[in-house]
Design a protein around this nucleic acid. Sequence first.
DNA 1: ACAGTTAGCCC
DNA 2: GTACGGGCTAACTGTC
Length: 666
Amino acid sequence: MLKGKIIALDLETNGLDPYHGDRAFCMGLKTNVGEKIYKRVTRESITWLKRMFNDASKTFVFHNAKFDLTMLMMEGIDPFSMKAHFDCTLTMSKVLRSTAQNHDLRTLTVKLLKRDPKDKDDIQTWIKQSTRAFNKEHGRKPGFNDAPEEMVKRRVLWDAESTLMLYQLLKPHVEDVCPHLYETERMLHLVCIDMERTGILIDITKAKQLRDKATKELERLQVDLDALVCPMTIIKKKKRKRKGETYIEEIPEEIISLNPGSSAIHLPAAFTKMGIPLKYRTESKKKSKGQPGRTGGGNWSFDEYAMVRYVSKPLAGVIRESSEEGWSVDKYYREVYRVLKKHKLHKRELLPPLILKHRELSKMISTYYSHLIDDCVDVKITPTGREIGVLHCKFNPSEAMTGRFSVSKPSLQNWPRLLGPRQCVIVRKGRRNWHSDYQQVEMKMFVHFARDKVMAKAISEDIHLTVAAKIYELPKKKVSSEQRKRAKGTNFGIIYGAGAKKIAETLTRKGLPTSEFEGKTLVAGYHRQFPSVRRTTQGLATELRRDGYIVNPFGRRYHIPSSLGYKSLNYMCQGTSADLMKAAMVKIWLWLRKHKLRSKMIMTIHDEIVLEVVRAEEKLVVPKMKELMEDLRSFFVPITVDFKVVSKRWSQKTNPEMEWFKKKVG
DNA sequence: ACAGTTAGCCC
DNA sequence: GTACGGGCTAACTGTC
């Protein structure tokens, strides 16, 4: 046994995905009394670790506890019943400075500890240098466990030592600044390990059916497109060098099949050939991760908004309606051809709608169906002959700068609400999935910060209608649906820090033409009616100028460069609702464990928590879920949740109609 | 192999 | 005088 009470532990693994076979192969430990141990992962070393994990006087420190604990779980160590305490330096760094771009061990160590990263980097250098030779000999790329052991040992010990040093540096700050927030984030490691382990049940047979159907439809689209534009000449550009001078050579090429995904080469050629003059260009985009500045832009644009402007009105209507209502491909096809015929449109008008549908279908296949089919594990055949499997997504509790969750490999949070993929998520036997979402939670946070009484009253009714009535100075009954939509756009625009111009532009893009002047009118009316909003924004700006950061009610700090001060309000609204939900997740998870219930938390989508509840536990779990989520009395407006229930497929989410639910939850 | 760009889905 | 927020993934494209 190690003598030190504080033990930094790092693992080296042969990959990052424990649910597809990646495993730890060695460990490095460094303690507060100077012990420094390197071990291979073996039965003996795991038993040795297990003993210390059961010692309540010890603290294990990780950099990303979720990862290392998951890997250890795969070796037979139960992270949920360990007696030792654990801490996580990654989490510490994130709660102290959510908005930093990078919290990885190397960056923090170099920046905060000024430590030479050579021992960490050597292994990557080795991999880069030996990839070719290794691949030739073994037929695969080298991983960390193929590197010389001396090198691996130096790296894992460097990691453990750095982790311990970061712990000693950051722990006092965390205790000082936001101990409760840190505790929530710390517990969230266990919640996520558990959610990832549980996974989502997938109907693979269904996914295959939907994929095959989409593939057939894709082929039909391809035939139509090729008949329309091919053969066609495209121009490929290649940089050439001659006599020290570089020049661009344009090589014409005859193609017989259009690639609708090639927006730089094929699409401009196709439009030109069909006699549609190119008109619209892409806008430059903001850089990601809160970086100032813009990037890209200026190329020919073929997104949906451009496409609806390339076709005549009736056809544009078909495109819009289809994407708003989630039409089937058959219906879309029928309508496109019907409208074309009815209005005697030129056949060139087929090009944009066919490309759009092609894009949608190939996205469905490659982003959604193929993962559902390929990434599932524990695949089984049900008695009825269906293939089902489990999908273990990765939950990242603090990947986003604001404190929001993200999900990856694959992401569960961006599945289309109207189209196929959600049909493939099914419920385990004897259970139902209860989705409970915070109603209008970001709006509520906004009202909380603004402390606006009119909005507070309206938030439990129809906030967008109320705001529309105020802006347009009309009785609610006289507000048109377009006015309400514009008010809604303004509400979100204000929270996102938009100006009048951008609000008008966004509304227009969404199919609700709005002039810049009207945008200005909207925003002016908004501030006239709700002066509290400007006060709130200015208050945050003052705080930011004074401290260099702003801090949300849970103690999370946002360091925002003054040039990006307009983001303050959004970070506060988004981040506070994220922290609210995280606190609820931990409370629910702990409660389920304390009462040894079999119901499981399986996912979260920003303002929504999903539990897979055993039927016999429903009357106990569902009301408690509501109670724990709504137990937040310190806000200016009541925080409430709404339930939906799923008994078979995620796509069939309904309002709960059970008597006990109406009586107990209401 | 890698980075930049576009596109499209979610809250 | 100013500005829509936060994510993930895939495909294409040109450069190293």
